[in-house]
Amino acid sequence: MTHGRFVVVPAAYVFLLRDSPRDGATGPEVLLQLRQGTGYMDDHWAAAAAGHVEQGETAYDAARREALEEIDVRDLDLAFVTAMQRTRGGEPIDERIDFFFTARSWTGEPRIVEPAKCADLRWCPLDDLPEPVVPHERVVLEALRTGTAQAYTTFGF
């Protein structure tokens, strides 16, 4: 018996941030990956680490696990940014809740661990992002840039 309910898919995203090391540059940089071979938003820039929250795992735990699995960093000092409820045209499979975090300190040098899924890893100024960026992630990056992030965000409604 179906109740017309949908299943919400949770995911965690990590935006590593640093002050720009370039002379004369102002503002923070974010580490982004160029997606490839995933079947979702390939050839788009995205959070350096992100993935589904697994059963019995908190979003914080998922963020730490994904950062280790995807870019080989650990001991992240995570700061919660926003929870984003998103959909795509009301398709039940696309009801999502995304938990976004930043980290300004971690252990290890970020590197591509999954080359079949990541074509490039690049530090980008928050005020000059490459194109294209995954649309719902761009919303959060823009809120980080402008200092307007709120605890709850929606996308696609």
Rank of each mutant, 00 (worst) to 15 (best):
L17H: 05
D19S: 07
D19Q: 14
D19M: 03
P21V: 01
P21Y: 05
P21W: 01
R22E: 05
G24W: 00
G24L: 01
A25N: 05
T26V: 10
T26W: 01
P28E: 15
E29W: 07
E29P: 05
L31Y: 05
L32R: 12
L32Q: 08
L34K: 15
L34I: 12
Q36N: 00
G37E: 02
T38G: 04
T38S: 12
G39T: 10
Y40P: 02
D42E: 09
D43P: 02
A47H: 12
A48K: 08
A49T: 05
A49E: 11
A49K: 06
V53G: 10
E54C: 10
E54S: 03
Q55S: 07
G56Q: 04
T58P: 01
A59Q: 04
Y60K: 04
D61Y: 00
A62W: 02
R64H: 11
R64E: 02
L68G: 08
L68V: 13
E70Y: 00
I71Y: 04
D72F: 01
R74W: 09
D75C: 04
L76E: 01
L76R: 12
L78S: 08
L78A: 06
L78M: 02
V81F: 03
Q85V: 02
R86C: 07
T87G: 15
T87K: 11
R88S: 09
G89T: 13
P92V: 14
P92S: 14
P92T: 14
E95Y: 07
R96D: 00
I97S: 15
D98L: 09
F99N: 10
F100N: 04
F100E: 05
F100S: 07
T102E: 15
A103Y: 13
T107Y: 00
G108L: 04
G108E: 07
G108P: 08
E109R: 14
R111L: 15
V113M: 12
E114P: 03
P115I: 03
K117Q: 07
C118A: 07
A119G: 11
L121N: 13
C124F: 01
P125W: 04
D128P: 02
L129I: 12
L129Y: 08
P130Q: 06
E131C: 01
H136L: 06
E137P: 07
V139L: 07
A143D: 03
L144Y: 15
L144C: 15
R145D: 06
R145V: 14
R145A: 15
T146Q: 06
T146I: 07
G147Y: 13
G147A: 09
Q150I: 10
A151W: 00
A151H: 04
Y152N: 04
T153M: 11
T153C: 13
F155G: 11
F155Y: 15
F155R: 01
G156N: 04
G156C: 05
G156F: 00
